[in-house]
Design a protein around this nucleic acid. Structure first.
Length: 429
RNA sequence: GCGAAUAUGGUGAAGUGGUUAACACGGUGGAUUGUGGCUCCAUUAUGCUAGGGUUCGACUCCCUAUAUUCGCCCCA
């Protein structure tokens, strides 16, 4: 019976795994330099964790979550994003008792039951950071600068940073009511989704793609006019710091993001290469979420973070040829001929492998041809050839694949050849 | 949730309403049984996603299902 993978999932092997680990290394190392510590939280949580944070009007909660009952009839959900879990953990483990800013980074599988297409999967990986405990605009700018740096480090240049402010919760609510008031009389010419949004979350009307050219939408009140002077000043401060840091941005007053927990700074790095299969998609996005921890009965904590789509970054690395597959997967292949040499070859391979040498050998064949084929497939730089005669004389033949030359070595030279310290390897009679 | 395209071997694929389903790569065996990469020869789909229909006859036309891919919505 042939069974295929679940729709929207993928198997990584070969170069894909290398690329994934490469991003993990580059982003993780840089995160540590920026002062983030790694955090690992569960892939699933009580459903409430996401409903309370993302908001019950959000698309993620409404139609994209993998929610199921466990055997105790408790409602669980595979995480659709990582921030909620970290926020929950922050409160549950009382990480706020230590003074100062808490900074975490994560690589987290996330799950959303959406229609898969280019750069969109049902199981995907988010790399992200969260900084909890400070509200400074310098922190906002530094988080964005970190995201910018990760993309840069990976060689990804062609991105557009869109940024906006949603203001404090009070400002956001005021604006929300103002929009509701404004759209109330004009909603008949908007799309069905927008009609629903008028009730649930009027801010979402602003980033509706269907009605983006609708004059009603274009003439809608701007958030800046509803925010307090302090809120606007704060935002301008963030912008001016970004400018000083050399990060180009584009203020988009319709950028509101799909999760309800955001306030103040929100931002998205959009991939801006028109020929790419993921053109115009967000590759790294986030914002400030002050007070989210109160949803878990924690202290009112200021926080900001972002998530980046690792698979989307992988697409870019591939399209721009920014990652070269490792050519040589082994350091040496042991070719063996003769009845008694197979076990000797296996022992020698074990010795080399245990001493840090990537070593391969053929387990089945006694003839040369398939073994040399193996050498080619593995693209090995060196070949050790042994047979009964060599073992008897305590020597081995060492072949250089590039020059195709061969020399005879004493078995005692094996350690020096591969720079192995400690006991010398010798054939056992 | 809505819309579109595609479905042929191990892989990439060409192809026609009618006996042998092109070509390439890969695999295997051999020329070459202690030395590979080149070359040459042989061999490699009783079958064209599944089910139904039209037809004397369907891999080809029609319908349905399934899968994959892409787009919309939304998002990383």
């Amino acid at each position: 019976m042939k069974i295929n993978k679940i729709k929207g999932t993928f198997d990584f092997y070969g170069k894909e795994v290398e690329k994934y680990r490469y991003i993990e290394k580059v982003a993780g190392d840089l995160a540590q330099k920026f002062g983030f510590e790694e955090m690992i939280t569960p892939m699933f949580e009580a459903t409430e964790v996401f409903v309370r944070t993302a908001g019950d009007s959000s698309d993620i909660v409404n139609k994209e979550m993998y929610t199921f009952k466990d055997r105790g009839d408790k409602s669980l959900t595979l995480r659709p994003e990582a921030t909620a879990g970290i926020s929950r953990s922050f409160v549950e483990n009382k990480l706020y008792v230590e003074p100062g800013l808490k900074k975490y980074y994560y690589f987290a599988q996330a799950f959303r039951c959406e229609r898969p297409q280019a750069g969109r999967f049902r199981q995907f990986t988010q790399f992200g950071v969260e900084a909890l405990g400070k509200e400074s605009p310098y922190l906002d700018a530094d988080i964005i600068y970190f995201g910018y740096s990760v993309l840069n480090k990976l060689g990804i240049k062609n991105v557009k940073l869109k940024i906006n402010t949603l203001g404090s919760k009070e400002g956001r609510n005021l604006y929300s009511n103002r929009l509701r008031e404004y759209f109330k009389d004009n909603i008949s010419c908007m799309c069905d989704d927008c009609k629903k949004r008028l009730e649930t979350n009027p801010l979402r009307i602003l980033d509706c793609k269907i009605d983006s050219d609708n004059p009603v939408l274009i003439n809608a009140p701007k958030i800046q006019d509803s925010l307090s002077e302090a809120d606007n000043e704060r935002f301008n401060k963030v912008l001016s710091i970004l400018k000083e840091l050399g990060v180009n941005y584009e203020v988009d007053s319709n950028l509101v993001r799909g999760l309800d927990y955001y306030n103040h700074t929100v931002f998205e790095f959009i991939y801006n290469e028109p020929n790419s299969s993921i053109y115009n998609l967000a590759i790294l996005a986030g914002g400030r979420y002050n007070g989210l921890s109160k949803e878990f009965d924690g202290p009112d904590t200021d926080a900001i973070g972002f998530g980046a789509g690792v698979e989307r970054l992988m697409v870019i690395l591939e399209e721009l040829n920014l990652y070269q597959e490792k050519k040589t997967k082994v350091d040496v292949v042991i070719v063996n001929v003769g009845e008694n040499s197979k076990l000797t070859a296996l022992k020698m391979a074990g010795f080399l492998r245990n001493n840090g040498v990537r070593c391969e050998l053929d387990y089945e064949s006694n003839s040369l041809k398939p073994q040399f084929k193996l050498c080619e497939r593995k693209n090995t730089p060196l070949i050790i050839i042994i047979g009964d005669e060599e073992i008897e004389q305590g020597i081995f033949k060492l072949k250089n694949t590039e020059t195709r030359t061969e020399e005879i070595k004493k078995i005692e030279e094996l350690n020096d050849l591969f720079k192995i310290e400690g006991e010398k390897y010798a054939y056992q009679k």
